[in-house]
Amino acid sequence: MDHQTRIEAASKFLLQAPPGEINDVLNDVRMIINDDGSLQEGILPVLHEYNVTQFITTEVPGVEHQVIISNASKVSQEEGFDQDTSRFVDPQSSKSFAFDHLRLEASDLQPFEFFAETEPLRTALQTATTNYVKDHFHDAVSAVLPSPLASSSSEEGPKKFIIQIVGNKYNPSNFWAGRWRSSYTLDTESGELTGKIDVTVHYYEQGNVQLASSHAPSISLRASLASSCTQPSNAIKILALIGDVEKKYQESLADAYHLMGDKTFKNLRRALPLTRQKIDWDKVTGYKLGAELNASRTGLNPSD
C-alpha cells in the first residue's frame, strides 16, 4: 500500500470516529502513516469536515460558554475573511474567531455584528433555545444563526434561521460515549420548519458496537404561527414544537433499544451455550474446546 493510499484510508477512519474518540483514532492512524508532516497535511480537510459535521464544541477565550463549530457558523469569504482561516461565529457573544481544526483551539476574537433588523428574532430564538436545552438536556450547547450568515454590512437580511443543539456524553471508564445533534431551519418566508436529528452511541466494552440513527422531521406550523413567525414573541412557541418532536423521537429510540435487547440480539446468537451455563473464561481449559485447543498447542491427546 503506497503512502497516498494510506492517507486516504486514514481519512476514512477519522470520518467514522465515534463521539469523543477522534484523538484516539488519530493516534492510531499516526502509527500507521509514520509521517507526521504528510499526515497533518493530508487529514486537515478531513478534520475540518468531521468537526463541522459533528458539531464539535470548543472553548473560546473570554467566553464562559462553549461554542458549536458548524457550517452554519462559518464566516463566508465575502464577509472579509480568508476561507482557509476557518473563522466561525459565536452567536451568543457576537464574536468571530479563528479555529485550529487539529488542535481544536480558538483564537483571534473579533466583533461580529448581525443584521440589525432581524436581530431581535434571532436573539429571541437563541434565548428560547438556551432555556429549552437547560430544561431537557443534561449537558448540551445550542446556537441560533441566520442563514445566510448576514452581518450588519449586508445589503439584505437573512430569510432563514438555523437552530442547532448538540449534547455530548463521554463515559470512557464504562466504555461508552454518545452524541445528540439536532438542527432546524426556520424559513420566515414560507413559514416552514424542517430539521434533522442525528444520534450516535458507541459501546466498546469487550466488543465494538456503534449505533447511528437519523431522523428528518418536518414540523407543521399552525397558519397563524406560520404567518407571524418573524415576531420575536413566537420564539417560545417554535421551541415548544421542537420539544414535542424531540420527545417523540427519544421515546421511539427507547422502544427500539428495548426491542433490540429482547428480540434482535437474541436472534443473532444463543443467550447461553448448549450446556445452558455461561462460560467461565478463567476456567476455559476445563471445557472440551479449551482442552482441545490446549492439546493442539502442546501436542498432547486431550483424552490422555
Rank of each mutant, 00 (worst) to 15 (best):
I69V: 11
I69L: 13
I69E: 08
S70N: 04
A72N: 10
S73C: 07
K74F: 11
V75H: 08
V75N: 12
S76L: 11
S76D: 15
E78W: 14
G80N: 10
G80T: 12
F81V: 10
F81T: 11
D82G: 03
D82T: 02
Q83Y: 13
D84E: 15
D84M: 09
S86P: 08
R87L: 06
R87F: 07
R87G: 06
F88W: 12
V89W: 05
P91D: 00
Q92E: 04
S93N: 01
S93D: 00
S93Q: 03
S94K: 11
K95Y: 09
K95Q: 09
F97T: 06
F97L: 04
F97E: 04
A98C: 05
A98F: 02
F99V: 07
D100E: 03
H101D: 01
H101L: 00
H101I: 01
H101T: 02
H101E: 00
L102P: 03
R103V: 01
L104S: 06
L104T: 05
E105T: 05
E105K: 03
A106W: 02
A106R: 00
A106M: 04
A106Y: 01
A106F: 05
S107Q: 10
L109A: 03
L109T: 14
P111Q: 01
P111C: 00
P111D: 09
F112A: 05
F114V: 02
F114Q: 01
F115T: 07
A116G: 05
T118P: 02
T118R: 03
T118V: 07
T118G: 02
T118H: 06
E119F: 07
E119I: 05
E119H: 06
P120A: 10
L121Q: 02
L121N: 03
L121W: 06
R122E: 00
R122S: 00
T123V: 05
A124M: 00
L125T: 00
L125R: 02
L125F: 01
Q126M: 08
T127I: 08
A128E: 03
T129W: 01
Y132V: 05
Y132I: 05
Y132M: 07
V133Q: 05
K134R: 11
K134M: 11
K134A: 12
D135N: 10
H136F: 12
H136T: 14
F137W: 15
F137P: 12
H138C: 10
D139R: 11
A140H: 12
A140Q: 11
V141G: 07
S142K: 07
A143N: 11
V144A: 04
V144P: 01
L145A: 09
L145R: 00
L145E: 06
L145D: 02
P148T: 10
L149D: 05
L149K: 15
L149H: 08
S154N: 15
E155A: 10
E156D: 13
E156F: 15
G157L: 04
G157K: 12
G157T: 07
P158Q: 07
K159Q: 13
I162W: 06
I162T: 09
I162G: 04
I163H: 00
I165E: 01
I165H: 02
V166Y: 04
N168T: 15
N168L: 14
N168A: 12
K169T: 10
K169G: 12
Y170K: 14
N171A: 09
N171L: 06
N171D: 13
P172S: 11
S173Y: 13
S173W: 11
N174M: 13
N174I: 08
W176G: 14
A177F: 11
A177Y: 14
G178I: 15
